[in-house]
Computed example of a mutant assay.
Amino acid sequence: MYQAVNAILEKHDADVGAAEAHGVAVGMLCVEVKADAANWLHQLFADEHALPDDDKSLLLNLFERTRDLLEPETEEFAFDLFLPDDDEPLNEQVEALRSWCEGFLFGVGYAQSNADWPGDSAEVMRDIVELTKIDSDVEGEEDEAALLEIHEYLRAAVLTVRDLFSEDKNAQLH
C-alpha cells in the first residue's frame, strides 16, 4: 500500500511522499481526533478535486484507518508509522522516517497553532524536531537497530501526544 500511495502522490504532483503525508494525518489526528480528511487532502494537493475517485478513495481510507488506529480504545500497538517495507534500502527507510517526522510536525502545527502544549508534549515535539535532522547516510546492523529504536520511540510518542491533547481537551470542557 505504501508504494500505491506514493505513486498517487507523485502522479498528482503532491509536494510530499507517502511517509510525510501520513505524518501530516497523524499530527492532525493527535491534536483533533475529529480532524477532517478533506483538510488533509487540501494540504497535500493544490487541487484535490482533480483526483480520480479511486485515488481519492485510497487516500481517504488511509486517513480513516489511521484515525481508527489512533482511537484510545484500539489496542495500543496496532498503530504504526506508514513507512517503506523493511526490505527497502536502509537509507530510504531513514529518509522516509525523517519525512514522516516533518509531516507530523506540520500536522500538529496545522491543528494546534497556539503555543499551549499540554504535559510533556513539548518535549516530545522537540525530540521529533531533532529527528528531522537525522542523517540518511546509513548502513549496517547498528544503524538498522537504531532505526528500529527510533521507530518504536515514535510509535510511543504519537500515542503520548494523542493522550496529552485528549486529556487537555477534556480538562478544558470541565
Results as ranks from 00 to 15, higher is better:
residue 2 Y to E: 09
residue 2 Y to D: 11
residue 6 N to Q: 14
residue 6 N to P: 08
residue 7 A to I: 10
residue 7 A to W: 11
residue 11 K to N: 14
residue 14 A to K: 05
residue 16 V to K: 13
residue 17 G to M: 13
residue 17 G to N: 13
residue 17 G to W: 10
residue 19 A to Y: 06
residue 19 A to R: 05
residue 20 E to M: 13
residue 21 A to D: 05
residue 24 V to A: 14
residue 26 V to A: 11
residue 27 G to H: 09
residue 30 C to M: 12
residue 30 C to F: 10
residue 30 C to K: 08
residue 32 E to L: 15
residue 33 V to A: 15
residue 33 V to D: 14
residue 35 A to H: 08
residue 38 A to T: 11
residue 40 W to T: 02
residue 41 L to E: 04
residue 42 H to V: 12
residue 42 H to C: 15
residue 42 H to Q: 15
residue 44 L to Y: 09
residue 44 L to G: 07
residue 47 D to T: 11
residue 49 H to S: 15
residue 51 L to C: 10
residue 53 D to H: 12
residue 53 D to L: 15
residue 56 K to D: 08
residue 57 S to P: 00
residue 58 L to K: 06
residue 58 L to R: 03
residue 59 L to V: 01
residue 59 L to W: 01
residue 61 N to D: 07
residue 62 L to T: 00
residue 63 F to R: 02
residue 64 E to H: 04
residue 69 L to Y: 00
residue 71 E to K: 13
residue 71 E to Y: 11
residue 71 E to F: 12
residue 75 E to Q: 08
residue 78 A to Y: 00
residue 78 A to H: 02
residue 79 F to D: 01
residue 82 F to Y: 04
residue 85 D to K: 02
residue 86 D to E: 04
residue 86 D to I: 00
residue 86 D to A: 07
residue 88 E to Y: 09
residue 92 E to I: 05
residue 93 Q to R: 11
residue 95 E to D: 15
residue 95 E to Q: 15
residue 97 L to W: 01
residue 98 R to D: 05
residue 100 W to L: 07
residue 101 C to K: 03
residue 103 G to V: 09
residue 106 F to S: 09
residue 110 Y to S: 12
residue 110 Y to N: 14
residue 110 Y to D: 14
residue 111 A to G: 09
residue 112 Q to T: 11
residue 115 A to L: 14
residue 116 D to K: 08
residue 117 W to K: 09
residue 118 P to C: 08
residue 121 S to A: 13
residue 122 A to V: 01
residue 124 V to R: 00
residue 124 V to N: 01
residue 125 M to V: 06
residue 125 M to Y: 04
residue 126 R to V: 05
residue 127 D to L: 07
residue 127 D to I: 02
residue 133 K to N: 15
residue 134 I to T: 07
residue 139 E to K: 11
residue 139 E to D: 12
residue 142 E to A: 11
residue 143 D to P: 04
residue 143 D to T: 03
residue 144 E to D: 02
residue 145 A to E: 03
residue 146 A to S: 05
residue 148 L to K: 01
residue 150 I to T: 09
residue 150 I to E: 04
residue 151 H to Y: 08
residue 153 Y to G: 01
residue 154 L to W: 01
residue 154 L to F: 03
residue 158 V to W: 03
residue 158 V to P: 00
residue 160 T to P: 00
residue 161 V to L: 10
residue 163 D to W: 02
residue 164 L to N: 03
residue 164 L to E: 07
residue 165 F to Y: 15
residue 165 F to Q: 10
residue 166 S to W: 07
residue 171 A to R: 01
residue 171 A to M: 02
residue 172 Q to P: 00
residue 173 L to E: 10
